[in-house]
Nucleic acid binder design. Sequence first.
DNA 1: GTGAAAGCGCTAACAT
DNA 2: ATGTTAGCGCTTTCAC
Lengths: 394, 394
Amino acid sequence: MGMIRCTKCGQVHAIAKSGMVRGKQRYYCKDCHIYFTLPDPGNTGVAGTKRPRPGHIATILDIAKALNISKSTVSRALQGHTDIKKETREAVVKMAGKLDYQPNLLAKSLVKSKSNTIGIIVPEFVNYFFPAVIMGAQEIASEAGYNVIICQSQESVKTEIANTKVLLASRVEGVIISMTRETSDFDHFKAFGRHGVPIVFFNRICEKIPASRVMVNDYEGAYNAVEHLIANGYRRIAHISGPPNLRLSQNRINGYLDALKAHKLPSHRSWIIHHDLTAANASDSAKKLLSLRSRPDAIFCVNDPAAIQTLLYAKSIGIKVPDQLGIVGFSDDPISSIIEPQLTTVKQPVSEMGQIAMRILLDQIKLGPGPHKPVHTKLLTNLIVRQSSVRDHP
Amino acid sequence: MGMIRCTKCGQVHAIAKSGMVRGKQRYYCKDCHIYFTLPDPGNTGVAGTKRPRPGHIATILDIAKALNISKSTVSRALQGHTDIKKETREAVVKMAGKLDYQPNLLAKSLVKSKSNTIGIIVPEFVNYFFPAVIMGAQEIASEAGYNVIICQSQESVKTEIANTKVLLASRVEGVIISMTRETSDFDHFKAFGRHGVPIVFFNRICEKIPASRVMVNDYEGAYNAVEHLIANGYRRIAHISGPPNLRLSQNRINGYLDALKAHKLPSHRSWIIHHDLTAANASDSAKKLLSLRSRPDAIFCVNDPAAIQTLLYAKSIGIKVPDQLGIVGFSDDPISSIIEPQLTTVKQPVSEMGQIAMRILLDQIKLGPGPHKPVHTKLLTNLIVRQSSVRDHP
DNA sequence: GTGAAAGCGCTAACAT
DNA sequence: ATGTTAGCGCTTTCAC
């Protein structure tokens, strides 16, 4: 073993290498039965005074060393533990400030097996709806001391699956989801359940998963909207619907159909068009409907962006709204009150939706692991009557 | 020590308690010099076969045990290390699936001192602008394998400071920021620099920090907008500006003033109103300007939401746009092309702004620690002439 | 009231 | 090709 001498007996003959400690070779003296490492050559002063390289972020250990106390004490002081001497706590806090200490949430989450993080998955960010829901949700989460990771699935199942992986890997404590328009396989959502991570669906819910849901009364909202059109003298009422696999599309169609039925009005297969919720596609759908030989005199749209495209298209080809065509949307997008004529719409409580979804989720988290009874919340919509559906002389 | 017997010699007299291991009491036999723990009473089978309690998330150790290999091998197999036997890798992957293994990013980030996470701080989510920028940014981040934590400061410095703390604690590798309208103290941003976390400001930049910036040519955009108004015969041109401490407000004011000066048109102190960028406040500002004895015949607005409120207010009191009042906005919000008359606006590349900010940030991260030369990017705007500023007979 | 040490789940350097 | 071990930064028994 060369010139290594035991720190106790000074002998050289009985020394063996024995692993590494903090990057330094550890030796073992077979005579003295002791382990030791060589003192740092470049640091002949007090042992362990290794000053932090620049760019090093201070840890509780740095604070502890600086104050000559243990890191447990520092940890306790920083957490506001009661049984810590007042002066000690003050010294720790002061030193933390001096060393520009920033707690490491990753380490904390790891040791506590609790990330204090909520995941949110939404399909897009383009329209008013989802950012507004997120605002509401984030507000409640912050109040409860939770952070939020927001994911956009971009209406792609593949991305949605990737999102769930990231959230799972980030050990979120719960997830709020509005699905992709094309999601029809739900295994990736089930992974949350298997790992005890509660889910709350909103708006675009998944019925195959026993999870909590926040929706609006889509059926009644649609029913009222169509009834309103009927009351205003419209008789040939068409519907631009959303993707057929979304429950909200089905509910709104049913409300639409039942309102027609209740008033003994005809419904045609060709008067219902499913579209994919993109703006371009909505205006195509409007075009299709308005080129029908049996042209509808009113269109109820699954959401405001579709209604707005419909309105714009009608105007562009010289169809007068509301005289020749009545239009009602769903959501109350800010554009609705600005476009001319102003859009009649079924207003849904958007920000509240996010708040309530988050409250339900936090409750489930508080209840701890194990499956809980899902909560199904149905918020109320109300019809905002504006110009696009009201004729002076029906 | 009661009835505890040494696992080697079977004696009882020389046993001492010696700390805890994995929740179990460890004992020491003074005769044999060995440590041991008692076998699990409820698990008399093979030692270490403790099956996972429900709700337990599988770790690499679980996979390792199940396959009777070491966790390093599992770790390497999962990372796609080259020097792993093919069969071993396949077995590991298969078992990972069977055990529903989900990697723990917190642990990985901790050990690698690399979180693969970027932070974004924006003032709000209400208007089109910030969500659109975030979309662009997130797109680039995902491509590079980075996750994003989005924070809303809600135009509150206090919240903004809290946001920086969270991001720092989450060990984000970089941050993209658009400041609060009221941010005038910048210490909380400096913390990022001190910890080697690069920042990129966009839109609402901070000049007191030597960080990268992404902006548009605010001055030229404003200049062109005002020159366009002048070309259309407007002479008494007012300006609804943003919060005075934002650089973009100053730049746009300067462009406005210089355009007036270049064309020898008057500028009045009372024709420039600062507002706080909320919708309600914008319409107040419009009201103020339009009640002036020397009423302006055109208004250039710092952004589209303000221009839209101005337009709505003018219409509400019967002022004809563009005949009696010319209006130009900034941004090209989707509403601009829908409102009537359609709004002339200085279009800025919104999504690109997010993309470029993220690219710059990722570059700085790649360069590693240490201060780097900040990159200042100025994107080009272009004037979209619509109806709100074009008179048939100037 | 404080310290010592185990351990959260993972990676990487070293040893074999 | 695989195992052993230390350690990322923190919390939390347990011991004194």
